[in-house]
Amino acid sequence: MAKKDQQKPGWKSIPEGGLIIEPGNADDYKTGGWRTYRPMIDQEICINCHICWIYCPDSSIISKDEEIKGYDYDHCKGCGICANECPVDAITMLEEGNLSEK
């Protein structure tokens, strides 16, 4: 799934002490495949209160210029905390299986 797993560096190319020298490279690892339910946000109802953003365990809600711009579906695990906490019910959880059929 992830690029790095396929490359499998040899012992000579691993940094001394097994250090990871690229900060935040877990970004390359996609956990979106874990998801059973996909959160969908209705931008017309959304009031940009950022409640979903502060509660997201996977840093997967995109905030830009004080607005919620949607989801990072590569990393969202579909826990549904955002949909549960949204004060205006702008977020619905849809089953992934049904979505891919369409």
């Binding site: 956990t31 874990w34 998801r35 502060i54 365990p57 840093s59 826990c79 905390i81």
Partner: peptide
């Protein structure tokens, strides 16, 4: 804290860290 960590879906620890 970037996404792509392998904590369970709905974990409280990463919410606290963020």
């Amino acid at each position: 804290l970037t996404g792509g960590h392998r904590l369970c879906s709905g974990c409280g620890a990463s919410i606290i860290v963020r």
